[in-house]
Amino acid sequence: ETGKELVLALYDYQEKSPREVTMKKGDILTLLNSTNKDWWKVEVNDRQGFVPAAYVKKL
């Protein structure tokens, strides 16, 4: 879809709370919100949640 910003997972991340999502290094995720410098909201496999901003980079 146009207008979607994507990020690349630089590291594996295992969710530690229900508000977070698990990702694997190399995953491409849809970026939903990056206003917080530490935690970015992403969508992966129809799930939305937060990942550490340092673990992903914008494509």
Score class of each variant (00 low, 15 high):
E1F: 05
E1A: 13
E1W: 04
T2D: 13
T2F: 12
T2K: 12
T2I: 13
T2S: 14
T2N: 14
G3I: 13
G3L: 12
G3K: 14
G3Q: 15
G3M: 14
K4I: 13
K4N: 09
K4R: 14
K4C: 14
E5Y: 12
E5R: 12
E5W: 13
E5K: 09
L6G: 03
L6R: 10
L6K: 11
L6A: 06
V7S: 03
V7E: 01
V7T: 03
V7Y: 09
L8A: 05
L8V: 15
A9E: 00
L10V: 07
Y11F: 13
Y11G: 05
Y11S: 08
Y11E: 09
D12A: 06
D12I: 02
D12L: 02
Y13F: 08
Y13I: 01
Y13N: 00
Y13L: 02
Y13R: 02
Y13V: 01
Y13H: 04
Y13G: 00
Q14E: 14
Q14I: 14
Q14V: 14
Q14N: 14
Q14M: 13
Q14K: 12
E15N: 07
E15V: 06
E15P: 15
E15R: 14
E15G: 15
E15M: 13
E15Y: 05
E15K: 14
E15A: 15
K16I: 07
K16V: 08
K16A: 11
S17E: 08
S17G: 13
P18K: 09
P18C: 10
P18H: 10
R19G: 15
R19T: 11
R19L: 13
E20V: 05
E20C: 07
E20M: 06
V21A: 05
V21S: 02
V21I: 14
V21T: 05
T22F: 04
T22M: 04
T22V: 03
T22K: 04
T22Q: 04
T22W: 05
T22P: 06
T22C: 06
M23Q: 01
M23I: 15
K24Q: 09
K24M: 09
K24Y: 12
K25E: 07
K25S: 07
K25W: 04
K25Q: 09
G26E: 02
G26H: 05
G26I: 01
G26N: 06
D27H: 05
D27L: 05
D27Q: 15
D27T: 08
I28K: 05
I28R: 05
I28Y: 06
I28G: 01
I28S: 03
L29I: 07
L29D: 00
L29A: 07
T30A: 10
T30L: 13
T30S: 09
L31K: 00
L31W: 01
L31E: 00
L31R: 01
L31S: 01
L31F: 03
L32R: 04
L32K: 05
L32F: 04
N33Q: 10
N33W: 07
N33T: 08
N33Y: 07
S34H: 08
S34Q: 10
S34W: 09
T35D: 15
N36D: 15
K37E: 11
K37P: 13
K37D: 11
K37W: 08
K37F: 08
K37I: 10
K37M: 10
K37A: 13
D38T: 14
W39K: 02
W39Q: 03
W39P: 00
W39E: 03
W40A: 04
W40P: 01
W40H: 02
W40Q: 01
W40C: 04
W40G: 00
K41W: 14
K41P: 01
K41E: 13
K41M: 15
K41S: 07
V42Y: 01
V42R: 00
V42C: 05
E43R: 10
E43A: 11
E43K: 10
E43P: 00
E43D: 06
V44H: 15
V44R: 15
N45E: 13
N45I: 12
N45L: 12
N45Y: 13
N45H: 14
N45K: 14
D46A: 11
D46Y: 09
D46P: 06
R47S: 06
R47F: 05
R47M: 07
Q48L: 07
Q48F: 07
Q48K: 11
G49F: 08
G49R: 02
F50W: 15
F50G: 01
F50H: 05
F50K: 02
F50L: 09
V51D: 01
V51N: 01
P52A: 02
P52E: 02
P52R: 04
A53R: 13
A53C: 07
A53Q: 05
A53N: 02
A54F: 08
A54V: 09
A54M: 12
Y55T: 06
Y55P: 01
Y55K: 07
Y55I: 06
Y55C: 10
V56M: 06
V56S: 01
V56G: 01
K57P: 01
K58A: 08
K58R: 13
K58W: 08
K58F: 10
K58Y: 09
K58I: 13
L59G: 04
L59R: 03
L59T: 06
L59K: 04
L59H: 05
